[in-house]
Design a protein around this nucleic acid. Sequence first.
DNA 1: CAGTGGTCTAGACCACGCC
DNA 2: GCGTGGTCTAGACCACTGA
Lengths: 239, 239
Amino acid sequence: MRNNKNLIPAYYRLADDIKRQIETGELKDGDMIPTEGQLGETYGISRMTVRHGLALLAEAGLIETVKGKGTFVHRPRLNQLVIDLQESAAIGAEKCRYKLLGVKLIRDEHYIKELKLAPDGKVFLLKRVLYKENKPVGVEEKYLPYLRATPLLETQLEYANFSEVVAKHQETVPVRNDMVISVDVLNAEQARLLEAEVNTPALVIKQVIYSKDDTPLGISHMVCHKDRFQLKATSYTPF
Amino acid sequence: MRNNKNLIPAYYRLADDIKRQIETGELKDGDMIPTEGQLGETYGISRMTVRHGLALLAEAGLIETVKGKGTFVHRPRLNQLVIDLQESAAIGAEKCRYKLLGVKLIRDEHYIKELKLAPDGKVFLLKRVLYKENKPVGVEEKYLPYLRATPLLETQLEYANFSEVVAKHQETVPVRNDMVISVDVLNAEQARLLEAEVNTPALVIKQVIYSKDDTPLGISHMVCHKDRFQLKATSYTPF
DNA sequence: CAGTGGTCTAGACCACGCC
DNA sequence: GCGTGGTCTAGACCACTGA
């Protein structure tokens, strides 16, 4: 009905308008916004285009739709934060590299169980150190199921991050990564590798990567030097 | 054209199909999936419905669309993880409560600067302890700008979590929460409050909450007992 | 019952990438 | 020029809510 020769799409202008009203407090938490039909009339656009705009806001968590009732404002969700491992691990930009310490084939009962392997299965144990600007930042131990068909390529192990190692280690597609962040102190070996003293506090990051059917494909245990590593997260979700 | 009397919508079946193909490895990273027109023909649905389904996959990060070229598979993004503070803070479910230690009005130069206040501004300092199952889990210090117009309601301070405190403290809408996770040791006061020994390792969570124009609205500094607190994150993003 | 959002269509024109 | 995804329309019918 209406020609829009603007550079920005109609659905985007709608979403941006409403987002602005929420961020300035004009629209408050719980307020109902106009119906899709009303918005379409106000902006001179069709209902499908209105819905496109509202979909952006819903994705960002700023509105919630209730069938049969209406669409309601939700204040910005500050309690859900995103960690980007790529960025976090390499705070000092690209000056990161891995040093492979060794690959072992072990029969540790605990990890055989945690990886849901057969009782006579074997587990790869990879150990490596993460360096940033030539200083040791973290010691990482990875546990991967031993699969005859897919031998580990040592050359690749020095570069890829954990989820890439898992992805290339086997055919199964990894689909989920669960992480637990906690605190511990360095043992003798870790202290030596990180050039720190025994019992120094350290950040511990445990990751478990799963396949579609919740089979663990790999476990990573990383212990990080307290003064050289921190994790960053943010709630920012624009559109 | 085609009647679908199924309970699940056509766009969802399409998205689920393609998701399954990615998760089983049938479709590999970088593969181009059929064009929207082809998919519409295959499934007997209109192009807009196809696009609805693809939007779900794009939102989950499983595909990427390139205008003029096509739509391409992207392996599950395992390096972006979500922390839910509500869940993480209360690992032992609902048995959480706060105890307010005190509210002070201070003129700390550092925080006046970090909160971007006028040089003669004042800062609220709130101190409280988080208990879980009657054990002290963390000590939290909050720094909020002192605003004459909106006095702090002490009663509310014992319950709300940080972002809620900030939201209720002033009119300005908080829209972003940046977090840094690091490690430190307990000082004398923290050790006393957490019923632990001085110099015990502890998880440190710093949050800064911002308004739309990047003005800091509040700063939180939480020090957590190493054996009673951990953060959980996951990459899981279904649709 | 009227009003709301959820699904879906069969077209249209556009901007972009590539040959 | 042709094929791709991006935007948009003007309808339609459905499922759900609440009076």
